[in-house]
Simulated assay, not measured.
Amino acid sequence: MEVEEPGAVTEFVAPKPCGLSAEQIERRAAAFAAEHRFVAGRDRLRDLVGSMGGRIVTVDVPHLRELDGGSLEVYGPGDFLIRLSPITGPMRDNFTIGHELGHYVLHSGEPLGSLRIRVGRWGCEPVEREANRFAAALLMPRDLFCSTASCCGNEPTKLAAQFYVSCTAAAYRLISLQMATREELGLAR
């Protein structure tokens, strides 16, 4: 499968929110990980993308939408391209790859890749929030993350190293799971 040339005429549709709840996205990420035998903190997402027929490239001259993250183009089932920024580090890139996989899993139709979508990681629209939640759940599964957090004193730096994500991603996951736990216990305001 070849990368389409810049300027090639390709018609894409805008991704639409999947409408799943946070818990449903968590379960979808867990099922996806199990299906692909992906173990967070151990396996490489780059290898998973390759096994699915996807490609990852670092762009030489990023478009504005790729400066602080990445983008995804889906050409068909098992044929997609993730573009990464040249100015981000490997731990940030790992979350970006998970985020773009979230778009592929949640927004490219069934079977996966049946909708030709193009999406840049920009803004806070529902599709972006859904992809972020998927990436967090895939890379930092709730039970494993919580048990690791309790062992390391809820230290984002240690969590980031364990799950190979940025400190920011680990801190957001920690906060979101603490808030979810408070809500489940009826302690939220």
Rank of each mutant, 00 (worst) to 15 (best):
G123C: 09
G54P: 02
P86K: 03
G102C: 03
L45D: 04
R65Y: 11
R129D: 11
H36Y: 12
R37Y: 10
V49S: 06
R118Y: 14
C124T: 15
S51Q: 15
V59K: 01
R118Q: 13
D47I: 11
L67T: 07
L84V: 02
E130G: 03
P90A: 11
L115G: 05
V39W: 06
R42C: 12
V105E: 13
R65H: 13
F38L: 08
W122R: 11
G70N: 05
D60P: 02
D43C: 13
T88Q: 14
G78W: 07
D60V: 03
V57R: 01
L84H: 01
F38D: 08
P77L: 05
W122H: 08
D79H: 14
P90Q: 13
R65P: 00
V74S: 15
D93N: 15
S108V: 03
H103K: 02
R55A: 02
E73G: 10
R92I: 06
D68G: 09
G70L: 01
R121T: 09
L72T: 00
H99I: 00
L67H: 10
R121D: 15
D60E: 13
S51P: 02
D68Q: 12
V74L: 15
L101V: 07
H103C: 06
I56P: 04
E110M: 14
H36P: 05
I56M: 04
T58W: 00
T96Y: 04
L84I: 02
L64S: 11
R37Q: 15
E125Q: 12
Y75L: 13
I117N: 03
A34Y: 09
A40F: 10
V39I: 12
L64K: 10
V127H: 10
L48N: 09
G54S: 03
G123S: 11
G53A: 09
E73V: 02
V119N: 12
G102T: 01
V119Q: 13
R121I: 04
R83D: 00
R55V: 00
T96P: 01
P126K: 08
G78Y: 05
D47C: 08
P86D: 06
G41W: 08
H63W: 05
H107V: 12
